[in-house]
Design a protein around this nucleic acid. Structure first.
Length: 364
DNA sequence: AAGCTCAGCAACCGCCGAGCA
DNA sequence: ATGCTCGGCGGTTGCTGAGCT
């Protein structure tokens, strides 16, 4: 199957590399309005979004999705990840299904950068002077077969994780669902603040559908969940992105979404990494609904007073200028130049204040 | 202060399975 | 039954910033 498949996109004329805030906003705006039933058609329909569908999908799933957690992994999450990896191997999507708000890419990165070493160290300690010359790149990274339950009796530290340094992928792939259930049954996973138990995990792993996610106020638009169903009326079964209505006014130019969409999940702001800025944001936001946009703006470096933002747009020592600054003809760029926070605030105060933005073409 | 190294992360690449005509 | 399209997954790459010399 799938042989002779054409590239997902013609690589000519499409942007590559890092996403610009403008592209992010276009993607968000489009998905908010039309959903993402067809990733490949999305860039064509979202005028001005010169990205291949795959790229859009990845960007959405890994970065723009509103139900993403941001910030460092908690200790519980790390331990959960370690144990799940021990059971599942490099099945990042399945692991991600059990870590709400975390993406497979993020998990993969965390594993490769942090946990792999930690587990390696733990395994080294456990072996107590055993073979010390482990090859960093091959050991640990190899998916470990489901270990014997005995080491898992300890519940707290990562030393319970066994590391299989055999080469190849012999182990993990052999796990059947039944075997997995068997193993899962015996392993206590510290999902203390994740709010779900082993049964739920079991369901997650066997069904590739995480009840934790689905039970959350957000929809199940994680990378491991079924695709959102798009209906022309309801558009999609994904959480309404809580872009401030003013932004929609700005984007649409016609105030199509001017009425505040009280998203059901809006009160359940995802866990921000360090809570401090989140709490500050929500404190400033009386409705508690603008956290996500604020967070996104912060992530995009767009957050802050206009002066600050404009200051950011100064050429760096290498003389590089943010592309947004260079494309002042683009109304979207103008919007970002002015700073979305300021623009949004202005929009609240008066539509004419944000009149610089007339339209972001997000429709087909 | 400058250069170098390394860790972290976002994005890309290629393959696979499912679904459909 | 076959071939194609599409979404999804896992591995890898490359950029960037922080830390070190």
């Amino acid at each position: 199957m799938g042989k002779g498949r054409a590239p997902c996109c013609a690589k000519v004329g499409l942007n590559r590399g890092s996403w610009t805030p403008e592209e992010d906003m276009r993607l968000i705006a489009y998905i908010q309005k039309y959903g993402h039933a067809n990733w490949r058609a999305l860039p064509k329909q979202a005028a001005g979004l010169l990205r291949c569908g795959k790229s859009c999908r990845l960007r959405w799933i890994n970065y723009l999705r509103p139900d993403l957690k941001r910030g460092n992994f908690t200790v519980e999450e790390e331990e959960t990840l370690i144990k799940l990896h021990n059971m599942l191997g490099n099945k990042w999507s399945k692991i991600a299904a059990c870590l709400p708000g975390r993406t497979d890419n993020e998990i993969k990165n965390v594993w490769n950068t942090h946990l792999k070493k930690r587990v390696a160290a733990s395994a080294g300690e456990q072996k107590k002077g055993g073979a010390k010359g482990k090859k960093k790149t091959t050991c640990v990274d190899v998916p470990a077969p489901a270990p014997s339950p005995s080491p898992s009796s300890s519940t707290t530290t990562t030393t319970t994780t066994t590391t299989n340094c055999s080469s190849g992928e012999s182990g993990e792939q052999s796990n059947t669902s039944n075997e997995l259930e068997f193993e899962l049954d015996k392993i206590e996973i510290p999902m203390l603040d994740l709010g779900f138990d082993l049964d739920m995990l079991l369901d997650t792993v066997t069904n590739t559908h995480c009840p934790v996610i689905s039970s959350a106020p957000t929809s199940t638009c994680s990378s491991a969940s079924p695709p959102c169903v798009v209906d022309d009326d309801t558009l999609l079964d994904l959480p309404e992105i809580d872009i401030v209505p003013e932004l929609w006014s700005i984007m649409d130019g016609e105030g199509a979404c001017a009425e505040t969409a009280q998203a059901p999940w809006s009160n359940a702001a995802p866990c921000h990494g360090n809570g401090t800025e989140a709490s500050a944001a929500t404190a400033d936001d009386e409705d508690g609904k603008e956290w996500w946009l604020e967070d996104l703006e912060k992530e995009l470096g767009l957050w802050g007073p206009i002066d600050d933002y404009q200051h950011q747009q100064q050429p760096d020592p290498q003389g590089r200028v943010d592309p947004l600054s260079a494309s002042v003809d683009d109304p979207v760029s103008c919007y970002f130049q002015a700073g979305p926070a300021g623009a949004a605030t202005s929009a609240v105060q008066g539509p004419e204040a944000s009149a610089v933005i007339t339209d972001i073409p997000v429709g087909p």
